[in-house]
């Protein structure tokens, strides 16, 4: 079953995994790996969130290849079963 989600909702879910993010300084076009708070644990958290919410298991390589939150969003959409 396809879980429908808007880019806006996906962006919120993404931001929920960050603790100290200044929402003024982040958008769907932000290169998320350049966020101050970004580290391996945040990356794992994003992977776990996507698995939990969408049952899509992304790999570390998928994260490396993605630049913006839009990239991630599209990746999730393409992998929805």
């Amino acid at each position: 079953m396809k879980k429908v989600i808007t880019l806006e909702d996906f962006f919120k879910l993404f931001c929920d995994e960050l603790d100290e993010v200044d929402l003024e300084n982040i958008s769907i076009k932000t290169d998320f790996k350049n966020i101050d708070e970004w580290d391996s644990l945040v990356a794992l958290s994003i992977i776990a969130m996507i698995d939990e919410e969408f049952e899509v298991l992304l790999t570390g390589s998928d994260m490396m290849k993605s630049t913006t939150i839009v990239d991630l969003y599209n990746l999730v959409l393409n992998n929805l079963s």
Partner: peptide, 9 residues
């Protein structure tokens, strides 16, 4: 080898 770990990691 499969899973969340990337080649780079």
């Amino acid at each position: 080898a499969v899973g969340v770990v990337s080649e780079e990691q």
